[in-house]
Simulated assay, not measured.
Amino acid sequence: MENQPFKPKPLLNKSELRQIKRSRTRIEGKKIITDDVRKLKSLKVTPDLSAGEAVHYYREPIWIEYYIPKESRFAYETKYLFIRLFDPVPTEEDSDKELQKAIAGRHIVDLWKFSQESEENKKLIFSSYQNTLGMLETVSQIYWNYRETKNPEELKTACYLVEALMKYEPTLASLQKFRDYSIYNLNFLIRLLNQTKQEFSLEDATVSLLIKRRNETWERENFVEDEDFDLLSALFFEQAFPNRGAQELNSDDLLYL
């Protein structure tokens, strides 16, 4: 069998590439005229959400540039992509028991606290997270301190640490005891930050993950298509990852300046 040349997997899936095609955004640094300026201008700055509903969304600012032929100028606006948060659904497997406890108790999945409950637990956590134990401990301390004091100042730090910890997954501990704990904790802290009206911003890769999880749920549940979300998420991807995945677009699909 001949060795096949390595081909890196595109960051964008075919659905997201189709979104970029439809939106006619900038690809690989080249500016592209949108085929529907009125659509871009008509996008709401924020969707119609109540305060209670907005808690369950992550808000990502999107910078929009479009050309107005009649005025021979470019216009610039900032609008917001609201990404619905979807939590992992626990199963009856052992790897989801801690997640079930966290959901029932309405708290984070606390790996540091788990490690303090028995010598066996400590061995599992310390061997799996030997380079990130300090991060786990800090997240635990910040969260439980917030529960006691209701002071939200350090919640952003906890959220960013959870975001960083996601890069070290999966581990033996997460495979055995904490499946999907990191996305659950991330969603949990995003909601807390929203509730306490804290301004924060996640990394592009994390936002991409939230979009993918939202899109997967939308497709699985057969929800009504949201054209505004599709366009704004396409704009996010081209701004965040301008040189990834664009090679799969046909030149005929784009109208360059």
Rank of each mutant, 00 (worst) to 15 (best):
E60D: 06
Q4T: 07
T25L: 11
G29N: 07
W63H: 11
E163F: 07
R244Q: 14
P61M: 13
P170E: 13
M166H: 04
D36Q: 14
L133T: 08
Y67E: 01
F229T: 12
S23K: 04
K197D: 10
E28I: 09
K14V: 10
T157I: 12
L175Q: 10
L232N: 05
N215C: 04
F114Y: 05
S208T: 10
L186F: 05
K101G: 01
N3E: 15
H56D: 03
V224W: 02
V89F: 04
R84H: 09
E238M: 12
H107N: 14
K123I: 08
V162S: 04
E16S: 14
L232C: 10
K44H: 09
I190S: 01
I103K: 04
R73L: 11
L124C: 15
Q198Y: 02
D252W: 00
D36K: 14
L202G: 01
L186Q: 06
G105K: 13
E137T: 09
F74W: 05
Q100S: 15
K14Y: 00
T78V: 11
T138M: 00
E153R: 15
D180L: 13
V224C: 08
R106Y: 11
N250H: 04
E137K: 12
Q198V: 04
L81G: 03
Q198E: 12
I64H: 12
Y168F: 05
L85N: 03
L165T: 05
P8K: 15
L172M: 08
W144F: 09
S15I: 15
L165M: 13
I62L: 10
E120C: 04
D35P: 11
Q19H: 07
L99H: 09
R106V: 01
A54N: 09
T206W: 00
D253M: 14
M166L: 12
V139A: 11
L17T: 03
D110L: 06
K113P: 01
L99M: 10
N13A: 08
D48C: 06
A234C: 05
L202Q: 04
V224G: 03
V207T: 08
H107M: 09
I33E: 03
Q130K: 14
I103H: 01
I103Q: 02
S182Q: 15
